[in-house]
Amino acid sequence: MRYLKPSSVSEAADVLESSRGMILAGGTDAYVYMAEGFCHPETLIDISSIDTLRGIYVATDDREEEVIRIGACTTIAEIAASQDLPTCLRQGARAVGSPQIRNLGTIGGNVCNASPCGDTLAPLLCLDARFVLRASGGTRVIACEDFFTGPKKTVLKPNEFLEFIELPASSCGKASAFRMIGNRKGQAISQANASVSLVMVDGRMSDLRVAVGSVAPVPLRLGKLEEFLTGKRVKEVSLAMFKEPILEGIRPIDDVRSSASYRQEVTVALVFDALAECASKDSGECEGAGA
């Protein structure tokens, strides 16, 4: 096995192009796959020490819009601790594994691993995140909702890697929250999770996004529910009312971690709690990157 540690993004893109090796960020997922014999890469390309791939700051994107940019190799712990990111993303990051895992694991790894239970995926989806993908030929940008194609499957080509994650600058002005439930309270893998972001206008919900994870092959937006809730006051809605739009949207499975029916029931509760938390806060909760 070859182990390469490129020092720049362009070098990384070149080595990836020529070797078609496997990208290694924190390695918390990648190591387990190798140890279980799921993959036997000939070349490992460790991008975790490329400086430009780390950090959270304000930038201008390809559409000349202001965005919060997150380097793909920013650790989950850094995301969890950042004051410059929306609450739901920080809460999602806090739900990943243990402190040890969060110190090694990266947000790029969580995204590219594309596990249906990844805890930052629903938050990123509900924040309208966009992913900047890099290849030796250049970059392309893809919306979060178009990125995931199945469990552990994405649109990434073998010669591409994730360079940045970008959030609209406005996402910091929204109220947001994340909830998950796992098979234990500490170091648990999500049986289901939910993320909500919204803006309260005159006490009514608007600009609403609801995303759920671990209940379908990919993280899902619940469009029907968003429609149903938009313009309503939180007090007007009850858990029973949005059971139906949620159940219509999700496609949970039975597996070793949970039954499909429990996933369904609990998703309703998680969405409700996340919504309630959002409504209880004033919007505009983070300072905005680099401020």
């Binding site: 098979n183 234990r184 648990a188 070793v256």
Partner: peptide, 8 residues
């Protein structure tokens, strides 16, 4: 997946 109790 075998959930013995954690400190939480």
């Amino acid at each position: 997946d075998y959930a013995l109790p954690s400190i939480k």
